[in-house]
């Protein structure tokens, strides 16, 4: 980076200071605090704490409930990521191809980006209302009694469906912009070289979308892990009980409701490690292998 730089000394410091103070107080301090408390056992009534080493972690991984939630989170993440990527990809490919109404379709397919996850959860609660929800009635047509909030699988289904609904637009926007950045002439060359539309898709379009896809993969995993909190919380109506929940929701429930700061912090640290690992994968794989120019 060779730039005709300014050489003042205090100005840049003054410019950086607000940002640095804020991240020091509200990022590094809490992050460090989480790591630290994960090694302590806190008295439930707030009278001091005892150092327990890795005790919180050990009890975490011996806790069957935690492992069950981790397992659910894994499946939840895989399913939400796969379907929201796949649906968005199909829609983006079609939206990229049509000429008539292209702009209208684009708007109709992306506005949900702006809907807050808990509002999405609210809509799910209405859709799956026990006595008159349209989706409950739809399942009743097949003789299935759908019970969100009571039946574990039904609740999980509602969460997953809602999370997909909420995430399709982001993926759609990125896939469409990825498609539109493929040079027109490259696609035309493929049109001349290959008569099969699906052949062209798999040998030219799809590989050229791979960088976008990998980027989105990480975004979607992060979304499913963290941003679905609002959906989970509203679908279970704030009453976790025996309902499915994700790891982040568990951190919240244990720490905020159950006042188990040590255990909750250990869970936070596990999640941090997970995110760091994901980022590492992103840098290693995406940056190195899947860039063409």
């Amino acid at each position: 980076m060779k730039r005709a730089l300014f050489s003042n000394i205090w100005l840049p410091v003054a410019l950086l200071l607000p940002q640095l103070v804020i991240i020091a107080v509200f990022f590094y301090w809490p992050a460090g605090y989480a790591v630290q408390s994960s090694f302590y056992l806190q008295d439930p009534f707030g009278f001091g704490s005892t150092f327990v080493g890795t005790g919180n972690y050990e009890s975490l991984f011996r806790n069957n409930e935690y492992l069950k939630i981790a397992n659910f989170t894994l499946w939840f993440t895989v399913i939400v990521t796969f379907f929201s990527l796949a649906i968005a990809l199909i829609l983006a490919v079609k939206a990229d191809r049509v000429i008539r109404g292209a702009k209208t379709y684009r708007t109709l397919l992306m506005w949900v980006y702006a809907v807050a996850p808990p509002v999405a959860g609210f809509i799910a609660v209405i859709m799956f209302n026990q006595s008159w929800g349209p989706l409950t009635e739809f399942f009743a047509l097949f003789g299935y009694r759908f019970q969100v909030g009571v039946n574990f699988n039904d609740t999980a289904f509602a969460m997953i469906l809602t999370s997909i609904w909420k995430q399709v637009p982001v993926n759609f926007i990125f896939f469409l912009s990825g498609l539109q950045s493929i040079p027109r002439s490259v696609r035309e060359a493929a049109l001349i070289d290959n008569r099969s539309a699906s052949g062209r898709f798999w040998t030219v379009t799809f590989p050229l979308l791979a960088p976008t896809g990998f980027f989105l993969l990480i975004i979607n995993i992060t979304y499913a892990l963290f941003d679905t909190f609002g959906i989970v919380d509203t679908v279970v109506k704030g009453e976790p009980g025996n309902n499915p929940m994700t790891l982040v929701y568990k951190v919240y429930v244990d720490g905020f409701r159950g006042n188990d700061l040590g255990g909750s912090s250990a869970q936070s640290v596990v999640l941090m490690a997970l995110v760091l690992a994901l980022t590492f994968v992103q840098f290693r794989l995406v940056e190195r292998r899947i860039h063409y120019t």
């Binding site: 107080v25 809490p30 936070s268």
Partner: peptide, 13 residues
């Protein structure tokens, strides 16, 4: 690191 993973300590602070 998203805010969600350090939510409790942030709250305490």
């Amino acid at each position: 690191l998203p805010l969600e993973v350090r939510i409790l300590p942030s709250y305490e602070i």
